[in-house]
Design a protein around this nucleic acid. Sequence first.
DNA 1: CCGCCAGATGTTGACGTCAACATCGCCCCA
DNA 2: TGGGGCGATGTTGACGTCAACATCTGGCGG
Lengths: 352, 352
Amino acid sequence: MADVEPGSPGRAGGLRRNGVSITDVAKAAGVSTQTVSRVANGHASVTPSTRENVQRAMRQLGYRPNSAARALRNGQFRTIGVILFRPTATGKTTTVEAITAYAAKAGYAITLIPIDVPTQDNMMGAFTRMDELAVDAVIVFIETELLDTAIVQLPPGVHIVVVDSDAADRYRVIDSDQGGGTRSAVEHLLELGHETVWHVTGLRTSYASRRRTQAWRDALEAAGRPVPPPVEGDWSAASGYAAGQALADRPDCTAVFAANDQMALGLLRAFGERGRAVPDEISVVGFDDIPDAAYFIPPLTTVHQDFAEVGRRSAQEVLRLIQDHATPRLGTDIVPTRLIIRNSTAPPSRIR
Amino acid sequence: MADVEPGSPGRAGGLRRNGVSITDVAKAAGVSTQTVSRVANGHASVTPSTRENVQRAMRQLGYRPNSAARALRNGQFRTIGVILFRPTATGKTTTVEAITAYAAKAGYAITLIPIDVPTQDNMMGAFTRMDELAVDAVIVFIETELLDTAIVQLPPGVHIVVVDSDAADRYRVIDSDQGGGTRSAVEHLLELGHETVWHVTGLRTSYASRRRTQAWRDALEAAGRPVPPPVEGDWSAASGYAAGQALADRPDCTAVFAANDQMALGLLRAFGERGRAVPDEISVVGFDDIPDAAYFIPPLTTVHQDFAEVGRRSAQEVLRLIQDHATPRLGTDIVPTRLIIRNSTAPPSRIR
DNA sequence: CCGCCAGATGTTGACGTCAACATCGCCCCA
DNA sequence: TGGGGCGATGTTGACGTCAACATCTGGCGG
């Protein structure tokens, strides 16, 4: 059998990605490898003619620095790991994109580690893999309880920033203003004249969900209003639809705050089917402000989150940690949210 | 200031990610590095007691293999690069997640390279970075025209698989069955009794969009129906809404095929506002079958795409190329689509 | 004209891992 | 009881890069 393909130079098995190493360039240019290295890294003290010479050789041979060797030499990988759950909720994608874009500008790459089910085992696995992987820092989208035990797995040198969590006492956390956003939604409905506001929660295991539910309750209590039992959802439009079917039968329910826009969509359809007109008979507010929300029927009043800004700040923080070799500062960096008022909210009808 | 933290061993500057190397473990266990390597890699011919011994040392010291060194040694990075545009369209996220999950199972990581604007310059930049990065293969979500000139930048050893493109003559392409899906949508509407089907296109620069428009035209012509002028959209609900406002005024328009679900959402709202009842007066079909589509008002008839399957197959193909050291096979691997009939389509009303 | 200095270039070794080869010790059989 | 053989373990070197140090060259001042 043909052990060595003709024309495939280098080792058998074609292991080498690119046969051209610094040594080859050095040979071709008639200089030492060190000089080539200096040219490649833009160091001073190389004669223009030599530089020219080396660069020509590089171009001719198609030289690319080998990043593995570099990483080995420098102890840095110029890579940031991102751990997140699947299926990825609406905005996270945007956040991840922003992280990627920001990191790319600084010459860092992003490595994705998805976790299917947020069990501790899987978490540990993810961190272990992250660690085996070449990563200088990690950005985690994760639930706190799981974080705690898993985190010990991470080697000391790796920096961590957490998104969407309440682990601010131990890590640097970046998050949208869940509390403020929720409060503005509830207060908006109260100001319209609604007696109280019902609530469809997100997935119980989600921090963001719990945070929103908590803030909803707080806002109601602060206004001295009764707190109706929250209806449990799971972020999906289907669960919002189910919640809507339950809520539609209650004449005392005139305003609903859904923990995200998809569930609000489900509510809209359920109320529509039951003949409860939105917003005339019943008001609905969502959370997230997904692009489609403006085209729901009716256009959805919702809390806008700046997902991209969350990503940008996470990347920025992580880069700061890596580059300044800084100590992590704890606490939460809160990205503002704002209420976008569209047509799904109105004063309660007097008819009742 | 504290230049060196007490208790932070190793080099100044904290370069080492993790002070523990194979050598340290070897020393601690009183064996050679090679034995440690053998244990780490699960090789046979290590006495159980020795293995136990080494494993204990590993655990105690918190040893993690250094992937840079491994990559250098093996000439493989166990990483797959994914190049894609921002902002990411609906399903791509799902596809990328599937790729990541599949690759993870094989012990491969995913590195993301986003491109903001699909210019040739940016493309070249992405490939160059991809190349400097440690990547064994690349999966590209990209427009063909741009691909051609940029591709030369890639070093010979790196494998490529293309998603969502028509470059099947030069690369391995994985794609949803755009043509079949579109045809089934158009035929469904025709069978319901509509004279013809109008069309709202996606972004003109998108291959998927062009492919769908083409298939729509073909299906109409094959049935001997008149081909109305396509209305140009840009994938967004806003553009669908605008298109809907234009179409609502035409009494001869009784059926519309939108190139994606968001635009269909926009159509639904526009028609609703103009008092053109869907589906009684006018039928709407989308493409993608996003999770929300079932909760639109009315629930949307649409073409289901299996985004995850596309991802899985891409990853599978790329892994095959890497591991079997195989030659790329050209041609397109088509993932089936299927029409999901909900309530946004009905026979044309006789009233007219 | 000699020697010193500075700038350009070369040499060496180390980063961590692992394949290939070398060696060591023990068991088993003649 | 001695030798062959095999399994367990050790030693060496190389992957590509680059910092640190070594060396070499030429110019310039004394």
